[in-house]
Design a protein around this nucleic acid. Sequence first.
RNA 1: CGGGGAGUAGCGUAGUCCGGUAAACGCGCACGUCUGGGGGGCGUGAGAGCGGGGGUUCAAAUCCCCCCUCCCCGACCA
Length: 574
Amino acid sequence: MRYSNLFFYTLRETPGEAEIASHRMMLRAGLIRRLSSGIYTFLPLGYRSLRKVEQIIREEMDRAGAQEMLMPALQPQEIWEESGRLDIYLAENILFRTKDRQGRWYALGPTHEEVVCEVARARINSYRDLPFTLYQIQTKYRDEIRPRFGLMRGKEFSMKDAYSFDLDADGMDVSYEAMYKAYKRIFKRCGLQARPVEADSGSIGGDASHEFMVLADSGEDTVVSCDKCSYAANMERAQVGGGMQDVDPNVEQLEMEDIDTPGVRTIEELTAFLNISPREVVKTLIYMADEKPVVAILRGDHQLNDLKLKRALGADSLELADDKTIEKVTGAPVGFAGPQGIEAGVPIIMDRSVSPLSNFTTGGNKKDVHTKNVNRGRDFQVTKVADIREAAENDHCPRCNDGKLQLRRGVEVGHVFKLGTKYSKPMNVSFTDTDGVEAPVFMGCYGIGVGRTLAAVIEQNNDENGIVWPLSIAPYQVVIIPVSMKDKEQVKEAELVYEEIGNSGIEVLLDDRDERPGVKFKDADLIGFPIKIVVGRSLKEGKLELQARCRKEKELVPQALILTRVQELMEEIS
RNA sequence: CGGGGAGUAGCGUAGUCCGGUAAACGCGCACGUCUGGGGGGCGUGAGAGCGGGGGUUCAAAUCCCCCCUCCCCGACCA
């Protein structure tokens, strides 16, 4: 391809809409263009890279034994009723829906569990028909609450989604493992450092799941990892280790005492008012779990993790209680709750870190009053002790003895789930086993955000001049720049090299624009082609300049050797 | 949806508080010219009526009302 024929543009200045590196650079390099919030056009250069990511995914999925198919984006609403997910998705307002001329409802698929189940059950009769794994690369539609960061979160986005079907849980584990391994290879080939972390399965549901995270400051998730062992988890799920010591029996339990704390509601206000550490305070939160009030208590310097609380309670829904409920449960307005004197029958869930505390300060369950020297056992009883707080920097690792937890930001590029029979039961995907008994299949589902992966690659591979594409997914592998289009010798040589390299199967772009050299160099760096050949002043000595985008050094290569040297360099940087 | 910010030429912005009579600047674009190894110089020129609608006023980018769009922080997810 010649620049003179290429549909592209680059922007000198950063469009105001872009905040993070990948978004900025994709706009500046002319890879994508926004049509509307969360909706993007892939321009030719960006689309080439996107297709390369897709191709890597295809190769690795096929290698893992999965089979590609293509399901419809437009889905009749009935199948969503059948799986029982329609209400949930409608409540979340995430579906793009439309009616046909007959008034029937359709949804633009936000995901494809329902459709794939419909397909699979048509085929599966006997245990002999299992196992298999299907996948597709499809555009998904989700009315996201907040699209952002360019390709990172869109209303329309490309996703590879795969679904495995197995006889039983063991089979499912094998399929899961195969996908897990394939994912590692996919991200590695894309030039990404992605790390699998334990994850919450969210609205897709299911038992176990891992997310593949790319560490980046711009990431929307927080990744918790151990500095000594391999433990890593999404903040949503991250456990907290450390001993669960009990109260020191030698500490004398002092008399409870009320303190007047007018207008003091938050932990910050309280610790400032009393001049004590938040570690000596117990914070009391009132939640509604499945419509019933519960009390959660944790140390003043900790944050509650509501997903963990929800799991500890085995609840389906969990939300903060409203002011009215809080008054009813504690007898005081918001901000003065304490575990002592809670309404009878309301369960109290205590975070493990509260266990060793004695004579602590907490809300007095009266307006403008806090109470000190509160003690568990004497002053209140807990229903359950559990790990319900958010992990914090330097917390103990839950898996190894001496590790400390670290918090980093990450981008979720892939997610693998063990679904079990969550969809196969309602969707009636079953088979007859060897005993002639009908049983539901065990499913897994496996997603990769294709565009998001592309963005993550740029997030991880860029410098002040632009993108530094890994060879595997660069829009073109090599760019040839004749320094002056007025120099006939340079132009002639550039054309020859362009032919030679192109004929060898390498993807090459010739910058035949009559631009000043600085412009050509800047564009090449911004778009980030892995290899650059400059035909310039050294041509007089019969030499060409060769440079990898990811390296500082340039080398002079005799004309006759350029193809060989390019091939070697490609080998070196891949 | 709650909180914060912003819509002025293809892009980046100034002007808005304190209304004032051809809407400014840089980049990009076109033409000419000098140049030709990191977004070059000089000159000439085209391009917006200020997100949309309504109102106030002698006069509105600027003040008031309504609406739309975009970005950032939170809940959601690949």
